[in-house]
Design a protein around this nucleic acid. Structure first.
Ligand SMILES: [Zn+2]
Ligand SMILES: [Zn+2]
Ligand SMILES: [Zn+2]
Ligand SMILES: [Zn+2]
Lengths: 148, 148
DNA sequence: AGTCTAGTGTTAAATTGTAACAGTTGCAAT
DNA sequence: ATTGCAACTGTTACAATTTAACACTAGACT
């Protein structure tokens, strides 16, 4: 899915999903939001806010950060905290899913899995310490298939 | 361990371990490094670089960042990427361990588990995608025991 | 003593992210 | 169709965070 995708298809189906989700949320998929979304989805590589701004027509930071915040809170993109960068979410339909992000440190491509069993375990272990989990981040750095 | 510790003991045993690890690495546990380490270990709360600099005698950023980089690469502290903050590692003896960080969003305390089984699964799943994992970050945000 | 490496001190700057506030647009209720 | 509201925009200016660069110093080893 990550590199051997027909990416035009991949991207446009993400766009359709995004439109639908925005509609469901009663939020508008405005020009800026769409533009940022498209830039993030240009590839499966992580994009920093700065990377995105380079491609934006209107380069003013608040525009970009606002769009990113919106897309993130709508579950349409993930913030990769260990890189301080963003990536389109492959499972946006699934609102509260936990993504396992596989980040290649050579080519910067990011793949995403849904590690249901492992997450259950993690949450259960936390619970045994009296910790009640709300948000789970799982990020793995390494090398992908093609960069070995 | 996180809150019901005898923290003087807790901290001083971390210090001893740190000294030992530095020696093993052939690195010096210099004043700045020791000072930053002590500040991070003042409590089990996450400390940002700015928080740390407030307590430093010498407030110049490079001093603090260099010490943090060193401590991190020596495995003595963890960088909590989702908060951009630092916490002392509870398992520093275990050089390449993966910590599962439980971060309370109310009191800012951080606990750490070693989720061996779950990590194995995550790495295995990644491998099935042809991804070879080098670093794993697991961070969970929620509320701890005492903040419920 | 000489030299090599790791660590320091310092200045200054690049990068990244926000506050604030006036203006505008889409939409719904009267 | 007007009015009114909430969401979104444009813009300025700033704050916070992190890094580059470079000359200097202390300790370790011949
Ligand atoms: Zn694709
Ligand atoms: Zn996702
Ligand atoms: Zn303690
Ligand atoms: Zn640890």
């Amino acid at each position: 899915m990550t590199k051997n995708c027909n990416h035009n298809l991949c991207k446009s189906s993400a766009l359709l999903a995004a439109e639908k989700i925005c509609e469901q949320l009663g939020a508008r998929f405005t020009q800026h939001r769409r533009r940022v979304f498209e830039i993030v989805w240009q590839s499966h590589k992580a994009m920093s806010a700065a990377d995105i701004m380079i491609e934006m027509d209107n380069k003013q930071p608040p525009i970009t950060y606002r769009a990113l915040d919106f897309l993130k809170s709508a579950g349409l993109i993930h913030h990769i905290t260990s890189l301080n960068a963003y990536i389109g979410c492959m499972h946006a339909k699934n609102p509260d899913h936990v993504g396992q992000l596989l980040i290649c440190t050579k080519c910067n491509n990011v793949a995403e899995l849904e590690p249901k069993e492992a997450v259950k375990e993690l949450i259960e272990q936390a619970k045994q310490q009296g910790f009640s989990t709300q948000i789970t981040h799982i990020e793995m750095l390494g090398t992908c298939n093609e960069c070995e």
